[in-house]
Design a protein around this nucleic acid. Structure first.
Lengths: 191, 191
DNA sequence: AAGACTTGAATGAACGTTCATTCACCAACT
DNA sequence: AGTTGGTGAATGAACGTTCATTCAAGTCTT
C-alpha cells in the first residue's frame, strides 16, 4: 500500500460498512457477498471478521450507522419553538435531502426495512435512540395532533416516504418536496 | 393417494406459487428455499422445475398472479360514474381489505417490490395490465387532478401504503382506513 | 525478533438445478 | 374384460456452484 492509497485507513470498519451499504444498494441483500464487500473496502476477506462476528452483525451495525446519521441530519437546524407542522416539514425535507445526496444509503435502508432483519434492526436502532420521528413524536405539543396510530405506522406514513423517495427519485425539485411533505403531514395528523 | 388428499391436485403450479408466497412472507426472499417451497406445496423438489425454469421465473409469476388478483379486487365494485376522489377511496380500501384478508400476499409483495427483482416484476406486471392505479390514472377525469409526478411515485404515495398497511397491520378499523385513504388521496392530488 | 495485524486460499454447509428412474394412467388389442 | 405397452408427469438423490466463515502464513512495526 503506497501513499497514494487510503491514508493508512483510520477506520477500516467504516470502510467495510460503507462497502456493504453500496453493494446492498446495487445488488440486494443476497447479492452483497462478503468477499465483494471486502474487496470494495480495500481489505482482505478475513478483515471484515476482525471487526464483525458475522455478516448479519455487520448489516445491523451499518443499519444503525445510517439511521443515526439520518437522525442527526433530521434534527440539525430544527427550531424547537416552531409550530409542529413546520418542524415536521423541516425534518421531512432534511431526511430527504440527506439521503438524496447519498442514494445508496436510501436504497440500503429500504431493503433492510422490508427484509426479515427489519424487526431486529428496528429494535437495535430504537435502543440507542436518535430516531427523528420517535424524538419528535415524544414532544408534548406534537403528540395531541398525531392520529392515534402505532409509531411504526406513523413512521411508514410520515417519514418513510422521504426515504423511499430519496431512494427512487433523488432529484426532486423543492416545490414537489414541499407538496409531498405536506401530504405526509396530513396523513399522520387528524382529519 | 386417497380421497382425503388433494383432489388430484388440479393445479400443482398454483400450489407451488402459493407455497412460495407464504415462505417468502415468513422467511424473506433468501429464506424461501426451493426444497422447502416444494415440501410445503406437497410436491417433490423437482416438480417445481417442471412448471418453472427457475426460482426467479417462479417468483415473477407469483408476483404477477398476486398483482392480478389485487387489480381485480380493486376494480370490482367501483362505479365508473362516481367522483374521482370516491373512486380512489373505493379502490384503496378494496386493495387493503383484499390483502388484509391474506397478509402473506401483502408481505410477499412488499419484499419483492423492494428487491432487485422489482424492476423486472413491474415491467412484467404492467405488460398484461390490470394494475388498478395505471387503469385509474389513465381515466380522463382523474388525470388532471393528479400531481405531476411519475406513475411509480403516484403509486408509492397513493396505493402502496394500502399494501404495506395490510402487511403490517391487517386489522385496522374502518374509520382509520378511511383516514389513511384520504391522506393518500391528498398526497397524490394537487395542493 | 517478537508481537500484532492482515490476508486470501481453504473449508464445509447450503443452495438452485438436473436427470435417471418410477408409476399412474390410458389406448389398443385380444 | 383382461392384458399389454407406451407416455410423460412426478420424484428426490446427486451435482456443481456459491457463500459465509476460518486460519495458517505473511507483513509490517517497534
Amino acid at each position: 500500500m503506497t501513499a497514494a492509497d487510503w491514508p493508512a485507513g483510520p477506520d477500516r470498519a467504516a470502510r467495510i460498512r460503507r462497502a456493504l451499504v453500496e453493494l446492498v444498494a446495487e445488488h440486494g441483500l443476497y447479492g452483497a457477498v462478503m468477499s465483494a464487500v471486502a474487496k470494495r473496502a480495500g481489505v482482505g476477506t478475513g478483515t471484515a471478521y476482525v471487526y464483525y462476528p458475522s455478516k448479519e452483525a455487520l448489516l445491523l451495525d451499518a443499519y444503525r450507522e445510517v439511521k443515526l446519521a439520518i437522525g442527526a441530519a433530521a434534527m440539525a437546524g430544527v427550531d424547537p419553538g416552531a409550530a409542529p407542522a413546520d418542524r415536521f416539514r423541516k425534518i421531512w425535507t432534511a431526511v430527504y435531502r440527506h439521503l438524496a445526496a447519498d442514494p445508496a444509503r436510501a436504497r440500503f435502508l429500504v431493503q433492510v426495512d422490508h427484509s426479515p432483519l427489519a424487526a431486529q434492526a428496528h429494535e437495535l436502532a430504537l435502543a440507542g435512540d436518535q430516531d427523528p420521528l420517535v424524538a419528535a413524536a415524544g414532544s408534548a405539543d406534537l403528540r395531541p395532533l398525531l392520529a392515534d396510530l402505532e409509531l411504526e405506522l406513523l413512521y411508514d406514513l410520515g417519514l418513510a416516504p422521504a426515504v423511499r423517495l430519496a431512494a427512487s427519485r433523488p432529484g426532486l425539485p423543492d416545490h414537489e418536496l414541499e407538496a409531498v411533505a405536506g401530504a405526509c403531514w396530513r396523513a399522520i395528523t387528524h382529519g
